[in-house]
């Protein structure tokens, strides 16, 4: 039996009962954002010469891939905080799973397989909405899907490691308020990074979201710099791989006592 598939199956079984709401929100959220910020705010930006500053690209086409990557980050962060804590602490679901032939490896890999599934659905829906808004300007945009999924995993894995060390959910608030939200706002999602104060710019380069945003944007706009693209992928893979290693250690420490 392939590693993790039973855990994946479990999560799919749970999802079967809630997918309607989740599909609706994964369509609604990009529609709202692109309508309000892409068309509403974007109209204003374009009229005032913003397109020039953005390299001649309408604001909505600049913004949409940024939102795509940010959506991947948020989905990943949410799915690997409260649900993981619930399964460790509240419902003791992992204890029940570990009493069967399943191992910690199955839990970790299965949860990640599930995160990848979810990200594919959510980001796929996002791309479809983007296309409908005319914010996709190159066939390379199809590659923005795996890039967005990888961006999600680059967050999911280390956050899972963090969640596995937490006794209560109180620090999740801190994570969202001081981690996820600032990244969402300051990683080049809404405006180019060179608008940030010079002191903060290097910090942004160190976070995975910046790389996800930049690469997704190059792909949907069809202006890829191969060397930069490789660098972006390497950074994302490093966060994912490091996170997976940490999560394995943290889960084992927590569950195998």
């Amino acid at each position: 039996m392939a590693v993790g598939v039973r855990v994946l199956e479990h999560n799919a079984m749970v999802y079967r009962r809630t997918w309607h709401g989740s599909v609706l929100s994964s369509l609604l959220s990009p529609i709202l954002f692109l309508a309000a910020m892409g068309i509403g705010l974007g109209g204003y930006v374009n009229r005032n010469g913003g397109a020039g500053a953005l390299g001649g690209v309408p604001y909505i086409a600049f913004l949409a891939p940024g939102l795509l990557a940010a959506q991947a980050m948020q989905t990943a962060a949410f799915d690997t905080t409260y649900p993981i804590m619930g399964r460790i602490v509240w419902d003791k679901l992992y204890d029940a799973m570990l009493a069967t032939p399943l191992t910690v490896r199955d839990l970790l890999v299965g949860e990640l397989e599930w995160v990848v599934t979810r990200l594919t659905l959510v980001c796929g829906a996002f791309l479809v909405v983007m296309a409908a808004f005319g914010a996709v300007r190159s066939p390379l945009a199809i590659l923005a899907l795996p890039v967005a999924v990888l961006t999600g995993v680059a967050f999911a894995a280390p956050i899972m490691a963090f969640s596995a060390t937490q006794k209560r959910d109180s620090n999740f608030n801190v994570l969202f308020r001081f981690g996820i939200t600032p990244l969402f706002l300051l990683s080049g999602t809404f405006f180019p990074l060179d608008r940030l104060p010079a002191a903060i710019q290097p910090v942004a380069y160190l976070t995975p979201l910046y790389h996800g945003v930049a690469l997704a944007r190059e792909l949907t706009l069809g202006s890829v710099d191969p060397a930069a693209a490789v660098a972006h992928v390497v950074v994302l893979l490093a966060f994912a791989a490091g996170g997976i290693a940490l999560a394995g250690v943290a889960l084992r420490r927590r569950l195998v006592v």
């Binding site: 039973r6 199956e9 479990h10 079984m13 749970v14 009962r17 419902d91 003791k92 679901l93 204890d95 029940a96 799973m97 069967t100 032939p101 399943l102």
Partner: peptide, 18 residues
């Protein structure tokens, strides 16, 4: 350690799958 997100029967089914 029951699965609160599943029904009574589903709890047994998925456990069998493990």
């Amino acid at each position: 350690s029951l699965d609160m997100e599943l029904t009574v029967r589903e709890n047994l089914q998925i456990y069998g799958r493990y």
